[in-house]
Write a protein that binds this DNA or RNA. Sequence first.
RNA 1: GGGCGAUUAGCUCAGCUGGCUAGAGCGUUCGGAUCACACCCGAAAGGUCAGGGGUUCAAGUCCCUUAUCGCCCACCA
Length: 1020
Amino acid sequence: MSTELSKTYDPSSVEPLAYQTWLDEKCFTPDPANPGPPYCIVIPPPNVTGALHLGHAINNTLQDILTRVHRMRGFNTLWVPGLDHAGIATQAVVEKQLKEKENKTRHDVGREALVDRIWTWKQQYGDRILSQLQRLGASCDWSRTRFTLDDMCAKAVRETFFKLFKDGLIYRGKRLVNWDTHLHTSISDDELYTEPTKTNLWHIKYPIVEESGTGFQPVQHGLQTHATEMTIATTRPETMLADTAVAVHPDDPRWNWAIGKSVRLPLTNRLIPIIADPILVDMTFGSGAVKVTPAHDPNDYAVYQRHLGTPTEIAILNLMTHDGRVNDAHPSWSSYSGLTFAAARKKIVEDLLAQGFMTEADIKPHEANVSFSDRSKTAIQPYLSDQWFVKMAPLAEPALEAVRTNKIKFHPERHAQQYLSWLGEKRDWPISRQLWWGHRIPVWTVRTHLKKGYISNESAAGLASVLQKSSESFVILATENGIRFDVALYREDFLPPHPFFDYDGELTIQICIRESNEELEAELAKAGFIQDPDVLDTWFSSALWPHSTLGWPEKTPDLAKWYPTSVLLTGRDIITLWVARMVMTGIYNMGDIPFTDVAINPTILDEYGKRMSKTAGNGVDPVDIIDTHGADALRLTLTTMATETQDARMPVKIICPKCQTLITNPESNKIPTVTCPKCKTVITRPLGTTTGTPEAPLGRMTSDKFDFGRNFCTKLWNASRFILSNLETTPPQSPPTALGGSLSLPDQWILSRFNRTIAEANEALANFRFDQYARACYTFFWDDLCDWYIEASKPAMKDPARAPQTASILAALLDGTLRLLHPIIPFITETIWWRLNEVRPTRGLPGQLDCPPSKRLINAPWPAAGPTSESAEHVFPKLQAIVGTIRNLRNDYKADPKKPVTVSISPPGDEAARATSDNRQLIELLAICTITTIQPNLPQPANSARGTANGNCDIYVEGLIDPDAEKQRNQKRKEELTSEIASLKARLSNEGYVAKAPVKLVEQSKARLAEAEAELAKLG
RNA sequence: GGGCGAUUAGCUCAGCUGGCUAGAGCGUUCGGAUCACACCCGAAAGGUCAGGGGUUCAAGUCCCUUAUCGCCCACCA
């Protein structure tokens, strides 16, 4: 097969071949036994909710860059790919689809069937995601692909849960969840939307009474007569039935005298205390008195928790049934029980009015933000429920320490703040979810009665037999009255005379089983134990990702080699949810941090400034871009966008599938189709998981931002073709590139620039400044190599004496450029490399680029930075400026583009004159001119146009006679110089400047002033 | 309300620890089918660095403040 490069660059013919070659040769699959220091990245596992968008593309491109760079640097490099089951989100999309297509709820199909359907979905989108990553060029080790629900991860999840349970870090507690009273399910915050809703603010009078038990006497306070009732304002009057306190601000003179007294709750006759709570109550809002309904309002629940265990502890009453009606838990609610909350509100308002606790004037229109369920579109209710929690304090402390002591570093650093402040709160982590898609909580529970000395009833007797069978595979926890009854121990201790067996009374017994064990579970079921129906928060499994993917809890060679991993690359939105938790579980399970660096990549926004997201449906499929621009172009463009700022905006257009017209993408994602303005085709918008129909084909997206990358790749392709064609016709110098003292100025300059670029790339990569890395390579290749060195090499290549060495340098530079760029644009560089290997198998730079080169670029060593030449980098730009000045004059005077002009040059001194003379040919070629004289202090020839390069080198172009143009030029130049002189003079006459600024700067200013004045004098 | 960030050329963005003529790509204008490349080459125009204060010999860069926008978190009885 020929590796010859086609005349035009076509990514679609290059990319699949290169990728397949890497796969075939197992370039991505490392062996832990191989030499080389470990380098490992674990992918932030994409959710299987849908396909990847450009946000994922940038994240994965950057990971691939680090992976490829380190592979080239000789590290034993592993990039672990994988997927996240994304509990709530995935179940939600499948349930939504079920509803739309079959009008069924999950209860209609049942747990097992729903989970099967979700697996089907996972298969479809999981495969899609992996193929997207491959199109992108990700050099992941696909043989190690993980999924957060696979057996390996499940084992890690079970082990971690068991460990936490055993250590007493998992407990059962109450929590307010968002309850969908229509679907009878709790839903996540993500599935809520709030809408300003017109409602009322009801002002209800609560009579104040002396402390409970002393009768309902209106309050007299000292000599002053205080109010005998409190007016509280509420948007939800129906919840008053479950009020358990009224809160006021302790500093509020209107009410603080009443703290410790009570109110008689209207309609129920219950006495509830007046308490002080400076956090809940805003003195400036409303009446300054707030009703507290802990079971039905998140803020009020927080009040309940704050006062728990203090003298002002308050009660908590749940008013609601699971379908959103008033329950019958309290006798005083009897006239309302069974009513929906809406109906109860109506009746309560009527009753309050009738009984004089409120007048019509106390009902005022109000607009409030009401939360609705995205799925059922009904108002959600806060609902008190039992949940599992992880205690954070013991886990958080070492995780905080790891970042405080710089064992883990964030890039950019500022993101550590978010991590530290969130973890610092140490709020317990609710880990149970009322879902079916996820890791089932491995706890079996029974409520039973124990009698002293023996387990009394049948189910508990069954327990005894279960216990006999099991080894160290379970932990028992027995609780009563919300207090942990400490009997949690291993089996060998779990025998009489353990205090457990002396307990007499009702007990809730929880058994956590370490590993999946069907036999044991069957025994438990027989003994009346029921497995918890809930599943774990999806973050519970992803928190283990860096060690679970490497095989933990088994002691695998992978784990030994690659844990801790090296860098975690992710978006800033999950620093708390994910990064912090990985650090905690990593330290807890492994005794060591999961990674040493956390690099945060920018968030990709759409053209309207909204975050690209799967659920929002404004994501752009990277494959769309790969099809229009190529994967390398996509990668390069994204890499240059990876700056330290946090956002990157991405304007996109929809391509009309019929006429290819580019259509502006509408902002609202509620618009499902667009119409092509040209051919009037109706197009389905590519929103998340939408697919086209025959009537409305799916549009695809593109963006001209990626022209940047495509143009660069084309340029690289063409320049390579040029260099290769030169190499084909020039005999190789042996040994490869003996770069002796015969180097010309351009040779020295370009090699120096090359070495500087390597150093810049290294530094940028060390700082995770991917944009700087890409730009350093871009500038070197295009501006220096193509625009100057290749042009300068053209005459050299025609000179038989100089051609072999020039060719060797070109070969080395192409080789080095390909190595430097490979991590960013792997496909095209690999393809060119193959051809270069054929055309010039021996090449290199001693000590920098190895020779013979490796067969595949992906395995080629990263270039070592060589010496730079200060003098070459000082002198060559002066020649560039001379060329620039001549070109400028040619343009300004409209010289015939093909005809050389006659030029004389007056450099500022003998040394400059020599350097100019030495490179006369180069200047003549690049500026299309013939140089007649190079001499300091040259008077201006007659009929010549004048320009200045480097501030002090006069250049005269003869034969360009255009008095008007000259006048205009001179005038403009005079103005520039005059203003520059004025500002320099002002600066130099500033005593503070001359006294305090560095001497070097002052000298420079003086020199520049002299130059400018001299030039102005010449202009007359 | 708390936190983070942004505001620099028409657009999208660089500009590190303050240093003297603020850069790039695209777009625009002018010129160019030259034997690597028109997805190209050469040249040019275009910016009181969001507004206002302050520190300093010197501010796009540091500090304060105002405005607008974005994201994350907490969300107002």
